Amino acid sequence: MDLRSVQRPLKKRYREEPGSSKVTLSARASRQETPVSCSVDIGRAVYAAEAHAGVGGSGQTACSGDLLLGALAACAQLTCQMVAENMGLDARRIEVGVEGDLDLAGTMGISEEVSVGFERIRVGFEVDAPGATEEELAALREKTERYCVVMQTLLDPPRIETRWG
């Protein structure tokens, strides 16, 4: 696949018609059989989700934290692959692993001093590009981190608005 030729007309259109680059993604969650499970519909696929076993789920289905970390891993992986391709790097293997630490005492309301949510998230990149120079690998890292939508969203979170109906 020649990624540059695929992206060239998109970039041209976004430059010529600036508003055309804006998109809205959506997801909708609905309750399933129990209060600890739901389905998540992103319009192209439906995923099952469940509360973490540490708060009452069975532990057999992805929890929302898994989905968040999975979204970060997928975005970092795809971004790194696409940047490497556009840089002309011969990357034999790119693999991204993501881990996150949280204290369930926060989400269970056990302690007000414990935050609800992840305390720390680690993103690890393993890149096998034997012909790449140190400068090229540094550029790959910088561009991957700059253009990874999920990473940038977590680093500089948007304002979240809630509506109740």
Rank of each mutant, 00 (worst) to 15 (best):
V150C: 03
R141V: 11
Q60T: 12
V127W: 13
D90E: 14
A139T: 08
R122F: 14
A139L: 13
A62R: 00
G59A: 07
G100H: 03
S37A: 14
E85L: 13
A138L: 03
G65Q: 03
P35H: 09
A74D: 08
F118N: 02
S37L: 04
A132H: 06
E145R: 05
T61Q: 07
E99R: 05
H52Y: 06
L68Q: 02
V98Y: 05
Y47C: 01
V150I: 11
P35G: 04
V55H: 00
R92H: 15
I94M: 03
S115H: 07
S39T: 12
C75K: 00
A132W: 11
H52K: 04
T107Y: 15
G65R: 00
I121C: 07
L104F: 15
V149L: 08
E33N: 11
E33G: 13
G131W: 10
D128W: 15
V116N: 05
G131K: 06
L140Q: 05
D41H: 09
Q77K: 02
G54F: 06
A91N: 02
A73D: 08
A71R: 00
E95Q: 12
S111L: 12
E145F: 10
C63K: 00
A73G: 06
V114Y: 10
E95G: 14
E119A: 14
G131R: 04
A48R: 01
S64I: 11
P35E: 12
L67H: 02
T133V: 14
A74H: 09
A129C: 12
C63V: 01
E136T: 02
T61M: 10
F125C: 07
G59D: 06
V83K: 00
R44F: 15
C38A: 14
V46N: 01
V149W: 03
M87H: 02
D101W: 12
E134F: 13
A73E: 08
L69G: 01
R93A: 15
I121L: 08
S115P: 07
A71I: 04
A76P: 00
T34E: 11
V114N: 04
G88S: 13
V98K: 02
D41A: 11
M87N: 00
A53T: 03
L89D: 06
C80F: 09
H52A: 15
D103C: 02
V96L: 08
A49D: 07
G70V: 03
R141T: 12
A45E: 04
A84E: 09
G43T: 04
L67V: 05
L67Y: 04
L140H: 06
E119H: 10
R31A: 14
A105Q: 11
A91V: 14
L72T: 00
T133H: 09
D66Y: 05
A84P: 00
A139P: 00
